[in-house]
């Protein structure tokens, strides 16, 4: 899959490979130390942030957390949909 910034796609692939290995072989097995991919993630992040800036993406909107907060939508009780 491509990154939003063409120049970041290579970094993204490297990061994704690292993450997928970490996720299946460590995280799901109970090891929650996430330092394994931290280095590549940082480099990849800088690239993506620059690409997003160029596309005028509103960082504030992106940063807003909804899941797990009171702003999360709740399913209506059964039968009212």
């Amino acid at each position: 899959m491509n990154s939003i910034g063409e120049e970041c796609t290579e970094l993204k692939k490297k990061y994704d490979d690292c993450f997928n290995t970490w996720f299946s072989e460590r995280f799901l097995k109970g090891d929650h130390d996430d330092s394994m991919c931290a280095g590549i993630f940082k480099v990849y992040q800088e690239c993506v942030k620059n690409a997003m800036k160029q596309q005028n993406i509103d960082f504030k909107e992106v940063d807003k957390d909804i899941l797990g907060t009171e702003n999360e939508f709740k399913a209506p009780p059964d039968g009212t949909s």
């Binding site: 899959m1 990154s3 939003i4 996720f23 993506v48 997003m52």
Partner: peptide, 21 residues
């Protein structure tokens, strides 16, 4: 789907929180 990027990711209280664009 044209692109997919990880914006933030962290382990909090044993759960993995991710935000992607």
């Amino acid at each position: 789907v044209l692109s997919e990027d990880t914006w933030s990711r962290q382990v909090k209280d044993g759960c993995l929180h991710t935000k992607r664009l």
